[in-house]
């Protein structure tokens, strides 16, 4: 993962971008946890809320794969269709762990 390029896309130096990535990892972890908890409680509205937040933050940093999955999760939440949502959360966790590995090797 080329953080330098992602950062320069946003007009940021690598160190500035890495600071944001660290914050992103933290908030994305939170958001994924919130999605999972909400899903476990069958709360589709809360799923959509947390997924919306994740969609925004990942999209802004240029992590488009996460943003797309989060968008699907938000849509499912809004449509109250959260069966098998664990597939989405698994893939979100997978993608986030890749970022973690690259960011803090």
């Amino acid at each position: 993962m080329n953080f330098k390029a992602l950062g320069s896309n946003l007009g940021l130096e690598e160190d500035e971008f890495m600071e944001l990535v660290e914050l992103f990892i933290k908030t994305a972890d939170d958001d994924i946890q919130k999605i999972k908890t909400a899903w476990a409680h069958g709360n589709a509205e809360k799923v959509a809320e947390a997924a919306h937040s994740l969609k925004g933050s990942s999209g802004n940093l240029g992590f488009l794969n996460i943003s797309e999955v989060a968008r699907d999760a938000e849509k499912r939440g809004k449509e109250n269709d959260i069966n098998n949502l664990d597939r989405l959360t698994d893939s979100l966790e997978q993608m986030l762990s890749e970022i973690k590995e690259c960011a803090c090797p």
């Binding site: 946003l10 007009g11 940021l12 500035e16 600071e19 944001l20 908030t27 925004g56 933050s57 802004n60």
Partner: peptide, 16 residues
């Protein structure tokens, strides 16, 4: 912005 990451991104960019 209620999203801490977006807020930080705005702060970093504009401060710069």
């Amino acid at each position: 912005d209620d999203n801490p990451l977006n807020l930080r991104l705005l702060e970093t960019t504009l401060t710069k």
